[in-house]
């Protein structure tokens, strides 16, 4: 068995990144420890909670269920890349703020990236589609209603 580190080249939030990681290192741990992007949270490390959701080539993916070596050459977007370059919050982020879509905030990056991925592919997603998509992730504080409210309001804003 090998603990040898290998080079992996990724594009993270638009920037090329080269890291040296063991094959067993998940993408989530690589983003946190090697890229310093600790906004991606790890809740369960078994693909259930969705806190580690990031966008890979535009699709929401659980970054705890993928090894960094598998992401070679992929375009990855994390919560750190959601706001504009000038620091203006993304409409989803602003909407979570406005509609009290978070309490402790641990699950929030995963929900934001999930919702961003869904709305970028399907800007006209209806409430049922969004409800179902949001059921992918776990939140232990909010009871989900305000998360849904936040995403619905952001979807409307993004459409206008």
């Amino acid at each position: 068995m090998s603990s040898q580190e290998r080079p992996v080249t990724l594009e993270v939030n638009g920037d090329p990144v080269r890291v040296f990681v063991e094959a067993r290192k998940t993408l989530a741990d690589t983003l946190r420890e090697d890229c310093g992007l600790t906004g991606t949270h790890l809740g369960c490390e078994q693909g259930v909670c969705g806190a580690c959701t990031v966008l890979i080539d535009g699709d929401p993916v659980r970054s705890c269920l993928m090894f960094a070596v598998q992401a070679e050459g992929s375009e990855i977007r994390t919560i750190e890349g959601l706001e504009s370059a000038d620091g203006t919050l993304h409409p989803l982020q602003q909407s979570f703020w406005d509609h009290h879509g978070l309490q402790c905030g641990f699950c929030t990056p995963g929900f934001l990236m999930l919702a961003a991925g869904v709305l970028e592919k399907d800007p006209n997603a209806d409430e049922e589609t969004l409800r179902e998509a949001l059921s992918s992730n776990l939140c232990r504080c909010t009871g989900y209603q305000n998360i849904l409210k936040s995403v619905l309001a952001a979807a409307e804003k993004l459409r206008s």
């Binding site: 068995m1 090998s2 603990s3 290998r6 063991e22 094959a23 067993r24 998940t26 741990d29 490390e45 090894f67 070596v69 598998q70 070679e72």
Partner: peptide, 11 residues
């Protein structure tokens, strides 16, 4: 938890 070490072959 984290996985045990393994060799990786990208075929």
């Amino acid at each position: 938890m984290k996985p045990a070490s393994f060799d990786y072959v990208s075929a």
